[in-house]
Design a binder for these strands. Sequence first.
DNA 1: GGGGTCATGTAAACAGTTACATGATTTT
DNA 2: AAAATCATGTAACTGTTTACATGACCCC
Lengths: 187, 187
Amino acid sequence: MPKPSQTETAVLAVLSVEPMTGYALRETITTRLGMFWSESFGQIYPTLARLRKAGMVEVVQAEEGRSALHRLTAAGHDRLLELLAEPVVLAPPRNGVLLRLFFGEVLGPEACARLVADARRRAEENLERLAQARRDVEADAGRPQQPYWSLTVSAGEHAARATLAWADEALALLESLRASSVPGGPA
Amino acid sequence: MPKPSQTETAVLAVLSVEPMTGYALRETITTRLGMFWSESFGQIYPTLARLRKAGMVEVVQAEEGRSALHRLTAAGHDRLLELLAEPVVLAPPRNGVLLRLFFGEVLGPEACARLVADARRRAEENLERLAQARRDVEADAGRPQQPYWSLTVSAGEHAARATLAWADEALALLESLRASSVPGGPA
DNA sequence: GGGGTCATGTAAACAGTTACATGATTTT
DNA sequence: AAAATCATGTAACTGTTTACATGACCCC
């Protein structure tokens, strides 16, 4: 069996819920999984082609005149189980904000404060998107997937709130730095 | 001027503190920035070669018999300022744990609980490493970089504690799921 | 009929890791 | 003398994004 691919895992997983076009697949990943996953067309279409060739996915005509949909085969479902059981791939850390802050002396407290404020704003935007996601999940009460979806929303909420709390702390510290380094304020 | 590179930024930033060998550069990135950054030798050495050719970095002989060190030139420092002012590159989200949890119905509550427990353990390990980093930073009290370093440690602590809190919540929910789906316990 | 969005794909470029090769120096 | 660590580099591969090309369908 070929070596596991993360894109393949995501594609098979989404198709396991419902057959759809490649375009809808990308749409679903962006809107439903966007907080913790992303795929580009340049990944999705070649992956679908490979999966088709390997018999994991078949193309079905849903309605006359409609685009053909990609549906998981039994082999595809087995493969999905196999891939989900693979060890999780941890992304190597690469946080540009923290890199800049670690060398914050170079940029100075004001520029650092702007970076932290930007990060704070992004976290707030995330919280809004998560509030919508929370409402969507609650509207699906009763579906067997509902508790699992709730889990992922909850993860985003915890992370976003942690960022907010950190940012407030950081902004206070940077303000005190600014004040002590320029006692008379900026000329 | 060439387009900004993240690796270049990190390399110039580390060298701005102190001249060192490529090997020590990697070591420094792994141990000091490891919580939020990473670079491999395959990136570092070609980057150093390019920076040397571009006059951003010069090679100096520190001591007789010792390996030559890479030192930032004035042009290198200007370039660093330029790169640090570039907009932060946000990594596309790719969280394998949350992907598996979103489709948690496929794996079932027990396997999901194992995934969450693993994530929890990683967060706890991070907290231990951060506690050491916190002690290291505090030992450097008085250095002008100290408050900035403290900021990055604090970010890690907030994130790790958020993961712990989420994981506990998630494990409780998964346990109740397991209980309700298999009322008599696993046969 | 024109603009938007649905839909599928390819090509080029890029970033990054892994594995390998090589050798000096230091420690045991 | 051997083993570990320090040190520099290259080559191959992989995964991923971006940009481009193309056309059908829908609704205003």
